[in-house]
C-alpha cells in the first residue's frame, strides 16, 4: 500500500493515502481503520479518518515511546508505522453496511425543496425521486458529532448554499450544499438548502458507537409521509 507520513504538531501523524476523493482511497482508509480497531497500540490515543488521510493521535510521553535514547517519539511512531503499514494488505476489503435513512421531504421540514426544484427545472417530486434513489457513501464523519460527509449525489439536484446562513437548523434536517447532501445531527447554524427531515437520531451520546453512521457506510434515503414521520417520533418516545 502506498502512503506517506506527515507530522501534525508534536502529538499526531497524518498517513496520506491518496490525493483525491474516490472510492479506492476511501477503501484504503477503511482497511487501516479496521486494523486499528482490532489491534491496540500502546502509544496510540485514537485515529481520525478523512477523505484521503487517516490521522493517528499519539501520546508523545507514552512510556512505550520513551526509554531508548537518540530517537524522539515522532521518529519512533514513524518507525512503528513503517514496519506495520506494508503488512496491511490493500486487498482486504472491508464490508460496508447499508443504512436506510427515512426522510420526510418538503413541508415545514424542507422549506427549500421548492427552491432546489426551481433552479434545476424539476418538480418537487422529481427532486425527491432523484435524492432518494441515489447510491451514497459516507466518506468521513466530521464538522459535528455524527455528521456524515456523503458522496454520490446527482448533479441534477445540486444547489448553491444560501447567501445568508440560517442561525438555527433543527437536528436531523436533511440538506443540499453544492454537489453534497448531508444530515445535521444536532441543532447548528448553517447555510445548506433544507429539503426534509429524518425521524432517526444520527448522534447517540448514550450508545457506543455514538454515531448512527460510520465512514464507509452506504446510505439509502427512503421517502416517508408526514404521518409516518410522526409515527417514528411516537415510537422513539415509547
Amino acid at each position: 500500500m502506498e502512503y506517506s507520513l506527515h507530522p501534525l504538531g508534536d502529538n499526531a501523524v497524518i498517513i496520506q493515502l491518496g490525493k483525491e476523493i474516490n472510492i479506492q482511497t476511501q477503501q484504503r482508509v477503511q482497511v487501516i481503520a479496521s486494523y486499528f480497531d482490532e489491534n491496540h497500540l500502546e502509544w496510540m490515543v485514537e485515529y481520525i479518518p478523512a477523505f484521503t488521510t487517516i490521522t493517528i493521535i499519539y501520546d508523545p510521553v507514552s512510556p512505550s515511546l520513551l526509554g531508548e535514547k537518540f530517537a524522539l517519539p515522532y521518529e519512533k511512531v514513524c518507525y512503528h508505522l513503517d514496519t506495520l503499514l506494508p503488512t496491511i494488505s490493500e486487498g482486504q476489503s472491508v464490508e460496508s453496511r447499508v443504512v436506510e435513512v427515512p426522510v420526510c421531504y418538503g413541508g415545514e421540514f424542507g422549506p427549500d425543496l421548492d427552491y432546489v426544484a426551481k433552479i434545476n427545472n424539476l418538480t418537487k417530486d422529481e427532486v425527491i425521486h432523484i435524492h432518494s434513489t441515489g447510491d451514497y457513501i459516507v466518506y468521513m464523519i466530521g464538522f459535528a458529532p455524527g455528521f456524515p460527509y456523503i458522496g454520490g449525489m446527482s448533479e441534477m439536484i445540486a444547489a448553491p448554499r444560501r447567501e445568508t446562513p440560517r442561525l438555527k437548523i433543527s437536528a436531523r434536517t436533511v440538506g443540499i450544499a453544492g454537489m453534497q447532501t448531508g444530515v445535521y445531527p444536532i441543532e447548528t447554524p448553517g447555510g445548506w438548502q433544507l429539503i426534509g427531515r429524518t425521524p432517526i437520531e444520527l448522534f447517540r451520546p448514550d450508545e457506543n458507537p455514538p454515531s448512527l453512521l460510520r465512514a464507509g457506510d452506504k446510505i439509502r434515503f427512503k421517502p416517508i409521509s408526514e404521518k409516518e414521520y410522526r409515527e417514528w417520533e411516537e415510537d422513539k418516545r415509547c
Partner: peptide
C-alpha cells in the same frame, strides 16, 4: 478521547 472518528470533539 476515542470518539473523534464519530465527529465527537
Amino acid at each position: 478521547y476515542g470518539f473523534q472518528r464519530y465527529g465527537v470533539i
